[in-house]
Design a binder for these strands. Structure first.
Lengths: 341, 341
DNA sequence: ATAAATATTTTACGCGCGTAAAATATATGG
DNA sequence: CCATATATTTTACGCGCGTAAAATATTTAT
């Protein structure tokens, strides 16, 4: 019960006693052939376990069922989670998703886009690197292939943009922190990889201004994607230098916050919102593990499901030929109150 | 500067003034054509930005440069990390790796293997689901495609097996824990997804016997891959029922340990090896974030680099035609002492 | 039962490229 | 400058499959 010598559809059709094109039709839609043909083909499949070559199939197809999903870094849990969601939606809708990671490198991003053309995808869902992306290449790609941009907006290209409302994230959590204790200092990377970081900072500044509080932004050094380590070092340094003017820290993202918590722990600072606690720490993103930090981290979670569903549906609609005007959707996150703040 | 109407190598060759097969040769090895031809081709590439279709290329190639990398779950950081390593080795060696995730589902694993045949890979690196895998399908696949099995051994199939020495992991850390304090209880899932869990338990039992200590295994309920949650609930339950006979817990893996730490925190148990601490907790795997738990987690880390390098090299050798007898390599992990134990 | 309408299968060609074998161009030796 | 050896390029065909258009089978109407 495996590939018993049958190497292609030609041979398979021969032993089935049916012409190859009919077999081809069967694989594209089993109901498109006569019942008798179908039964003979299925009997042969059971017997020889034949499967058509998916790449050859797509070679001369008018429209493939392929969908490319591209994210900056699959090892980042946020992207892994959203990519996983998108993948599932594609599968449920009968598409064949393939995932690609740019590894945080614009060169890879361009290469992936080039390779994607070979796949002849019906559509593509991409979270661009952001400011590091080769904008011209991206734009040209969007002209040629139905593409949804998600997470980081890059101009008004593609079918539409879907992402989280990062300004709302920072606004809501700043608001909460201001009302429940000392106003927060904002803790971020000086040169963030993702453009959303800038929106969060700006929104923090706006929210603080609305409250009439003096904002304080601590921008730490660090390159790359090892955010926990960067946050840990930055926090150690900032704590040693007593840089924080209040006892409340809002981190630009959860991974920085995780590093921050570790620094607090090692400096003997008890984190939390209770009487005896020395410092409050909050993050943003709704990272999987924030429920399991010590203490559990207060954060604003992306609405992963809504973002991925909106992006997927928009792509499917475009593939189905619907011509909608370009639009940008930013979905609200949800404040998750835990012990850390 | 993008695809300016040129849709295939035929057209590209025409405007370059060179025959298509020569262009084909160029893309397979730029030095295999006359310098003058090469220059004309490269000028045309600059001008029209043409790239051959990678899937059509592989259609009738004697040997592709494709390598498939298959893991049970890309969202698990251990697999994400090892897959990332493997991917890099493949790229460095001039291969084209493609990553696949079985999503913990044997059906997907079989489907991936089917699709992989369409890719005509030069070789495959796969971490099977383990006991859930369809063994017959796997075995048949290994007969047809040069395959290295890593992480979980399934029979003696494939070119060779490379994994971590899980028995050494549990032995060494049990040894350490016994020497540095009370002997550990073993905390694990009752029905682990990965067969290595059984090796770790057995090795714990052996090590305890060697010391003459009474072993204690706490096997908790829980299905799926949400290990932190499973560990958290199991720990809460076990702590409430005072199931642990000593103050030291060795978790079967780091993700369970992360959940365990959270349970300790919420139960007011201070974790660590200092005088005033109530409990010691250790994990196994060397999960990325164990450095940033509170307290940082003592664990045994996989030698990711050695495992992935050995697996990749073995595959490359097999692809190059070297006929080595089947072998199994288990690479030692490294004890990482931190504050939790 | 027969002609017309409809469903299904075949024929014939194409997709984008690799690759042996044949043809041609360049290099080497005298 | 010509013959032979060698480096390159072309010719011709194949890979595994999709898809219009033509051919055939089946169903429906009369």
């Amino acid at each position: 019960m495996s590939d018993s010598g049958i190497k292609n559809m030609e041979q398979f059709a021969a032993i089935s006693g049916i012409s190859r094109p009919t077999v081809s039709k069967y694989f594209n839609d089993p109901d498109s052939v006569r019942r008798s043909s179908r039964e003979r083909i299925e009997a042969a499949i059971d017997k020889y376990n034949y499967r058509p070559n998916i790449y050859a199939m797509n070679q001369n197809r008018a429209m493939t069922k392929n969908i490319g999903i591209v994210v900056p870094l699959l090892s980042d849990t946020y992207f892994a989670e959203i990519a996983r969601n998108l993948e599932q939606h594609c599968i449920d809708a009968g598409y064949r998703p393939t995932m690609f990671s740019s590894h945080g490198d614009p060169k890879f991003e361009v290469e992936i886009l080039d390779n994607l053309r070979s796949l002849k995808p019906a559509g593509v869902l991409i979270a661009p690197l952001g400011r590091a992306s080769d904008r011209d290449v991206l734009e040209k790609f969007c002209e040629d292939v139905p593409t949804i941009i998600f997470d980081s907006k890059v101009g008004d290209i593609g079918i539409e943009f879907v992402g989280s409302d990062n300004m709302q994230f920072a606004r809501d959590i700043t608001d909460y922190l201001c009302r429940s204790g000392e106003p927060p200092c904002f803790f971020e990377m000086k040169t963030p990889a993702n453009p959303n970081a800038h929106r969060r900072r700006q929104s923090y500044l706006d929210a603080m201004a609305a409250f009439g509080f003096e904002p304080q932004v601590i921008s730490i050094e660090g390159e790359g994607w090892a955010f926990e380590e960067i946050g840990f070092r930055g926090a150690n340094d900032a704590l040693a230098r007593k840089l924080f003017s209040t006892n409340t820290i809002l981190c630009s993202n959860d991974r920085l916050a995780i590093g921050f918590l570790t620094a607090c722990y090692e400096n003997g600072l008890s984190v939390g919102r209770s009487e005896g606690d020395a410092i409050r720490v909050a993050g943003q993103d709704g990272h999987r593990l924030t429920r399991y930090t010590c203490p559990p981290l207060t954060t604003v979670s992306h609405n992963y499901e809504a973002v991925s569903l909106q992006a997927a549906k928009a792509l499917f609609a475009a593939i189905d030929g619907q011509e909608n005007p370009w639009k940008s959707t930013r979905i609200e996150g949800k404040l998750i109150l835990r012990a850390s703040a």
